[in-house]
């Protein structure tokens, strides 16, 4: 006899189920804990940094010299180097990445795509330290032989920037191809029907229609370039330097963090706290870029779905 009050999945089972669900929920909640952890630690250590008598916020934001040894904490040289490498990276990565994406989605045959996509995947899967080695042993000598040994220093932001551009290229190409591929076929067909050539259709119809997705891609790539560490640590040089010449050595924000933490730095020193203050700035910049990128791409998804 089956007792109708004892369901095979009785009360006991349901507690079981609820337990599992709450455990899984706790795992998901951990991601919030990580974000909060990052925020709390960066803010706490930055607070310690700025409460140091040697440091003042205004001097930090506007100072043109970063020499912790003699109490100069102006972070403009570091920011300037970060922007220099990132701008160079974008100058290479955005056009080439976009053109590769256009070629893949509008021009290439299935066979060519089948060869090119794995190439991009391999490029994207190579660790950044390998790109750093490439910058140091290939890009720098190349730049020096083109522009002259006197003009180009052994460590320079141009070499690091160009290689970061190569690093973000596959990411830009893949994401831009997705954005372009999301443009409905009808738009292209309408443009052809009006007599547009392939190039005109691409530039006057497809690209404008995919613009929000493309800008989201570019912002994400910029954020990646700003946060890139090992390439600049190897190729851009050690030592803050406020310069606008891409051929001079200049340390970036990430390069400084790696150099300082790589040596044995003692806790509660100004050096130790300074890397967290710089980390906070890095986090704020990249976080803002990511959020804007996300907002833009959400808008674009609403457009066509």
């Amino acid at each position: 006899m089956i007792d109708p009050t004892v369901h095979p999945f009785g009360k006991k089972m349901r507690i079981h189920e609820r337990l599992i669900e709450s455990t899984l929920f706790a795992f998901a909640l951990l991601s919030i804990v990580i974000t909060l952890g990052i925020a709390i630690i960066l803010i706490r250590e930055s607070y310690l940094f700025f409460s140091d008598p040697e440091v003042e916020l205004w001097g930090f934001l506007t100072g043109r010299e970063w020499q912790p040894m003699i109490g100069r904490f102006g972070f403009l040289p570091l920011l300037n180097a970060t922007l220099t490498t990132s701008v160079i990276a974008m100058a290479l990565g955005i056009p080439v990445g976009l053109f590769v994406a256009i070629y893949l989605s509008e021009y290439a045959s299935d066979k060519t795509r089948g060869i090119l996509k794995p190439v991009l995947e391999v490029l994207a899967g190579i660790p950044t330290i390998v790109y750093g080695y490439f910058a140091l042993t290939f890009m720098t000598p190349l730049l020096r032989s083109i522009f002259g040994m006197e003009t180009v220093e052994i460590y320079n932001t141009a070499s690091a920037g160009l290689v970061i551009g190569i690093l973000v290229l596959p990411m830009i190409a893949t994401m831009a191809e997705d954005a372009i591929g999301a443009v409905p076929k009808e738009l292209r067909l309408a443009a052809y029907a009006l007599g547009g050539t392939k190039m005109e259709t691409t530039f006057k119809v497809v690209i404008p229609a995919a613009l929000s997705g493309l800008s989201a891609t570019f912002l994400l790539a910029l954020s990646r370039a700003i946060g890139e560490t090992m390439i600049v640590a190897l190729a851009a040089g050690a030592g803050p330097n406020l310069t606008f010449s891409p051929f001079e050595a200049a340390e970036t924000i990430t390069g400084y963090i790696v150099r300082i933490s790589g040596g044995d730095v003692s806790y509660n020193s100004v050096d130790y706290n300074s890397i967290f203050a710089l980390g906070l700035i890095l986090f704020l910049i990249t976080f803002t870029l990511n959020m804007i990128s996300r907002k833009i791409s959400r808008m674009f998804h609403q457009e066509y779905e």
Binding site: A28, L29, S31, I32, I34, T35, G37, I38, I41, L42, E45, L220, S223, R224, I226, G227, E228, T229, T254, I257, V258, S261, Y267, I275, F276, G279, L282, F283, T286, F287, N290, M291, R294
Partner: peptide, 28 residues
């Protein structure tokens, strides 16, 4: 929705920031 957005954001945080987190939390 916030959880989901947060995970996407975390995936785009520069790796060096995780290093700072690890230094302060796990190492110290």
């Amino acid at each position: 929705r916030m959880l989901q957005l947060n995970i996407f954001n975390l995936s785009a945080v520069p790796s060096i920031i995780y290093g700072l987190l690890g230094l302060a939390v796990f190492v110290r």
